[in-house]
């Protein structure tokens, strides 16, 4: 715990960098996963192929995926950013599909019967009703992304992994411990915060 007290500013700066990387990757991942998920519910025949491909990416060990991306785009924040976005797709798309499919077909029919276009029905009826399930996917993805982003420290991206991997390289246990504790606390905090959001969303729905 010594390191956390003596190097508070450094730990906080790396925590902020870690959070920034995950948040940015999550926004980009969602911007890809939402349309992909919507397409998957419309093109039912292609959906298993899409989910299968995303599932296959998800099963590649994260260190191996990262190593492959380093070969492709070099060291720095870029390979970990791409890995985060690619890795999250499976969890996000799966929940977007499950969320939209959980909407009662009668509700959708009613929306169309009221004169809404399919687009209006999707945006104003189906997606709002699917929101709690989608948010569940966001929570699972965010926690997994906090873990994966830690490996960024090994390939030159700034974040809490920097503490762990620098500590490992110079045999500095306090630094390793500080990084491990901080990244665990961050994952737990994000999990709790998003669980709270889900509860809130459920109580409105």
């Amino acid at each position: 715990m010594n390191y956390l007290q003596t190097h508070t500013a450094r730990v906080l700066a790396l925590l902020a960098a870690h959070l920034e990387l995950v948040a940015l990757a999550l926004v980009v991942a969602l911007a890809i996963a939402l349309p992909l998920g919507i397409v998957a519910t419309r093109a039912k025949r292609q959906a298993p192929l899409l989910l299968g491909t995303l599932g296959a990416i998800y099963t590649i060990p994260s260190l191996a995926l990262l190593a492959l991306l380093v070969q492709a785009v070099g060291l720095g924040p870029l390979p970990i950013f791409i890995a985060l976005v690619a890795y999250a797709q499976f969890m996000l798309v799966r929940n977007v599909v499950a969320g939209i499919e959980s909407v009662d077909p009668a509700v959708r029919d009613a929306a169309l019967g009221l004169g809404m276009s399919t687009r209006q029905s999707l945006l104003r009826v189906e997606l709002p009703l699917a929101a709690p399930v989608i948010l569940g996917g966001v929570r699972i993805a965010a926690v997994a992304m906090v873990a994966l982003a830690t490996l960024g420290g090994y390939v030159g991206a700034s974040g809490l992994g920097t503490l762990i991997f620098t500590g490992l390289a110079i045999h500095h246990n306090d630094e390793i411990l500080a990084g491990s504790i901080a990244v665990s606390a961050l994952a737990i905090a994000i999990d709790l915060a998003l669980r709270g959001c889900e509860k809130l969303l459920h109580s409105y729905g």
Binding site: V143, A147, T150, I164, G179, S180, I181, A187, I188, D191
Partner: peptide, 9 residues
């Protein structure tokens, strides 16, 4: 919830 790399270290 704890990342596996953190569990190891």
């Amino acid at each position: 919830t704890i990342p596996s790399i953190a569990l190891l270290t």
